[in-house]
Simulated assay, not measured.
Amino acid sequence: QHAIMPSVALGLASSALIARLTRASLLQVIREDYIRTARAKGLAERLIIVRHALRNSMIPVVTVLGPLFAALVTGTFVTETIFGIPGLGRYFVTSITNRDHPVIMGTILIYAIFLVIANLVVDITYAFLDPRIRYT
């Protein structure tokens, strides 16, 4: 019950960005020739959207999801401070004011690892979404 407001504060802007980008990308893909060809073949509209259009429109969305996830994890400083949640962000801010250098370096290292893992997941997801992309 106490996590509702912080969750909304963290997720509202991100979900709006993802929804807007997904819509714009899907509208762009729907106008492509292969979608018209699939409709002319008589495929169901739901199948066309899910299998052909949505899969290709997710590439720009996945591109944004990696840095967005890292920004969401590292952007908890303000949310934890406002809502009084004891977490890594608040600990990081406290360590800065106390000039606790090992904690500062460790926290930055953890956030950098989050960023690297998020970008790695994005790169791996590219191979699933677009069969032309292969990693050797």
Rank of each mutant, 00 (worst) to 15 (best):
M105N: 05
G87Q: 06
R23M: 08
Y126L: 10
S15V: 12
G11T: 00
I113L: 05
I110A: 14
I110K: 11
V62M: 12
I108D: 01
S95P: 05
F92A: 15
I96G: 00
A40K: 09
V122Y: 07
L72D: 03
L72R: 07
Q28E: 04
I85F: 02
P102H: 05
R36D: 11
V8Q: 06
G106R: 13
T81W: 14
I48Y: 06
A127G: 12
T76D: 13
L120A: 04
L88N: 11
V61Q: 05
A71N: 08
A13P: 01
L21R: 01
G11H: 05
S25M: 02
L12Y: 10
V73M: 10
R90P: 04
Q1L: 12
A16V: 10
A71L: 14
I59Y: 02
M105H: 04
R23A: 14
L17C: 06
R31S: 09
L88C: 07
L72E: 11
I110F: 15
F114Q: 12
Y34R: 11
L43E: 13
F83D: 04
N119W: 12
K41A: 12
L54M: 04
Q28R: 09
T76K: 12
I30D: 05
V62W: 07
T125G: 03
I85E: 00
R36M: 08
A9F: 11
A3W: 14
T81Y: 10
V50M: 13
G106P: 06
D100Q: 11
R132G: 00
E80D: 07
Y91V: 10
T81K: 09
R134W: 03
T81S: 12
L27H: 11
R20Y: 03
H2G: 02
G42W: 08
A127Y: 02
L21Q: 05
I4T: 10
A53Q: 01
T76G: 13
M5D: 04
R31L: 01
V64G: 04
G84R: 08
A40P: 13
I104Y: 00
L72N: 10
P102Q: 03
I110P: 11
A53L: 04
S14Q: 12
G84N: 07
Q28L: 02
I108W: 01
